[in-house]
Amino acid sequence: MTLYARIAGTGSYLPEQRLDNDAMVARLAALNIETSDEWIFTRSGISARHFAAENELTSDLAVKAAQAALASAGVNADELDLIILATSTPDHLGGFPSTACVVQDKLGAHNQCAAFDVQAVCAGFMYALATADAFIRTGTYKKVMVIGAETFSRILDFKDRTTSVLFGDGAGAVILEASSEPGILSTALHADGSQRAILCVPGRSTQGGIAGSAFMTMDGPAVFKLAVKVLEQVAREALEKAHLEPEQIDWLVPHQANIRIMESTARKMGLGMEKVIVTVHEHGNTSAASIPLALDCGVRSGQIQRGHRLLLEGVGGGFAWGAVVVKY
């Protein structure tokens, strides 16, 4: 029997602290940085974002999203065979113990299921989803939780208005189950390390300190140019693997980085924006969390229905990018 990985449930979580553009303008003004709601919105489509509280860790956001996904799927934490967590902002310096292991403990998953983190920045959820799909298709695991969770507010330089206004915190999760019915239809992943300098955190840990900057840096125009190019390419590759044409897709669920990138991708694929799940206006760029957050919003709003074909795609630092075609 051919095995597929089927999405059995989705969940998401946003921190309580919501900052609209006016609040961000006031925050930056206190640092003598000038910006405006119009400047932010016209360049990104972002009106608001959420920031984690001082005592909230990435694992805390991930657990809330995971609990919602478990409830949606009707699955107990002890039934999980594997937890994969995509993040660039782990709980611990150096990334260990893995935040996935922390989530396992906080969820009360006492069956000692496997757990590990994946680091591919904004493409992290695509990498994690493809990895989970492979485990299920080979029969290694039957129930896998895939999470994208970030506290990007911790690595933002608020003196840099070109980056600080774009990002937010949040988490999204899905439960994948082995099924005889098609679920994940295809995956496509790529990376180009030669482009790593255009979006990165350049600092390094050294003898208890930081060598270089611990803040994220980004060459916005270079990122935009690369993103619109590779997203179309990887989307068409994933569709070809699934033997589908763009017009057969019910919903495009893209990484929520910038509305102009999303519009460009949709236009190149011949898809109207009415077929695109858009949350960037309310969430900002939540990196690895953005696609599962948007997916869960689409499901819970009733836009995404069982049987719909979805095209998920994301690109981020590394540079890394990927796409996944799903029959929901």
Rank of each mutant, 00 (worst) to 15 (best):
G9M: 02
S12P: 00
E16G: 12
R18E: 09
L19N: 05
D20Q: 09
A23Y: 00
M24L: 13
A26S: 14
R27A: 14
A30D: 11
L31W: 11
E34W: 08
E38C: 04
I40D: 07
S47E: 11
F51Y: 15
A52P: 00
A52S: 14
A53P: 04
N55A: 09
A65E: 08
V75E: 01
D91M: 07
G94F: 01
G95P: 00
P97S: 05
T99M: 01
V102H: 06
V102L: 04
D105P: 03
L107V: 12
N111Q: 12
A114P: 02
A114S: 13
A120E: 03
A123K: 11
A123G: 10
T140P: 03
T140S: 10
M145C: 10
V146C: 06
E150C: 13
T151Q: 11
L156M: 15
D169Q: 12
D169I: 05
G172C: 04
L176I: 06
S179D: 10
H190K: 15
H190N: 12
R196D: 04
I198L: 08
Q207M: 07
I210F: 01
S213L: 05
M216W: 06
T217D: 11
D219L: 00
E237I: 10
E237D: 12
E245F: 02
P246L: 05
Q248T: 06
I249V: 14
V253Q: 03
Q256T: 11
A257R: 05
I259T: 08
A266Q: 08
M269D: 11
K275Y: 02
I277D: 00
V278R: 13
V278W: 01
T279W: 01
H283E: 13
G284D: 00
P292W: 04
L295H: 08
D296I: 00
G298A: 09
Q303G: 02
G307E: 01
L311A: 09
G314F: 05
G317E: 05
V325C: 15
K327T: 11
